[in-house]
Amino acid sequence: MPGSVKHDYPSEADDALVKWSQQGDTEAFEQLVFRHRDKIYARALMMMRNEDQALEYSQEAWVKAWQRLVQFQGESSFATWVTRIVINLCLDQLRRQKRVRTESIEAMDEESGGVERQLPAPETNPTAGLEQDELRRRIDEALGKLTDAHRTVVVLHEFEGLEYKEIAKRVGISIGTVMSRLFYARRRLAFLLQSLKRERSE
């Protein structure tokens, strides 16, 4: 019963913490926040590329998670469930700012078949020799150079594992646009990572 038994929260599994949180135990929920806050913040930062917004939306995601805890039935992990909440918040915000659906010159070029003319195919092992942390940082930099629209489909597909159809539904675009944005984004990433390799060898 919440409050009547003192639990050793840090040593408890997510399942138990979620159960107690669903009964109104805020200490259990605080432990969940502490445990997964970096992952949720990182996802928001990857989507928004702005620390203040990432902080705000990650906190808002936790508040929504608390409000909707009774809906969590354990079909996915708790962290995945909260990640989806923060992604939806970021997508709403990007849509409001018209950052994911606006047709830029780049996007028009991409969707009219300009992709393959401009960028090279991904090269085998473009980042060989880089340290893991350095590689992670470079990939983050490359993601930051994509437009919001392109980065969003990469995040949803590569890191969230969503299928084209699900991405199309969440972003509010056609499956064809998902495919072309994903293709363009991948080639651009490959190009950027190859540029890093060239920089290193010079």
Partner: peptide, 12 residues
Amino acid sequence: LIRAHEPVATVP
């Protein structure tokens, strides 16, 4: 490559 090196961040 990118899935294995997903960018990380710490709440500031």
